[in-house]
Amino acid sequence: MNRRKISIKRELPTATLSGFVLSALLILTILNILLQNMPHKIETAGDLLLKLNTTEGVANAVTTVVVYFRGFDTLGEISVLFIASMGIGLMLRSNTKCNIKSESNFMLQTASKILFPVILLFGTYVMIYGHLSPGGGFQGGVIIASGVLLLLISDKAFEVPHSVIVALETFAGVSYVLIGLIGLLVLDTFLGNFLPHDISQMGMLLSGGIIPLIYIIVGIKVGSEMSMIVQNLIKRSDDV
């Protein structure tokens, strides 16, 4: 009797079935909540910020929200990114020099030399024009990191120098906080826009005061951290 019960229990895929049942119950509950209380109020939450955005002279409203209205949160988020990058470097440290096992393809080697300046230029463009068009520091930094990835997989001896990364990251973090503190001194708010930001200059490259400056700083920090993550992941795989 007892043995038969156990055998029946083993035949049924209990983990799969319980996963299905739990997922179905949760989906019914949350669908009920979401479909009954249609969110009418949150649709108008951004109108005030959109009106305020026009006084800063920045064309892209998302940039203003990320860098100016939520600038302190962005400082915290790039700190989270720094801590994650540091943890990956600690986990995947490789003491041995990587031994070159196989050369990469000839076409990859040639094409990466041609493509890397173009990717670098595009990343810098996306970073600098973040207050005028879609894009900004986060996207530009990741594009530059993918260019570094292309160099890393094509050339086995290539390595981003660690001192350069340390210098760039220190410069970016310190200048973010310094610009915020200058705003605190001049305008009594952290990250106050103390540079000229005239509404008539909107759409020009030099507009918006400190907002494009801070997004370029965020781009430098994100790009160096992503490059370190990519390099740690690839270099560790070489010395298997």
Partner: peptide, 11 residues
Amino acid sequence: ALTEAVISAGI
């Protein structure tokens, strides 16, 4: 869309 494209394709 730009962020998701870069992240999901590249990294």
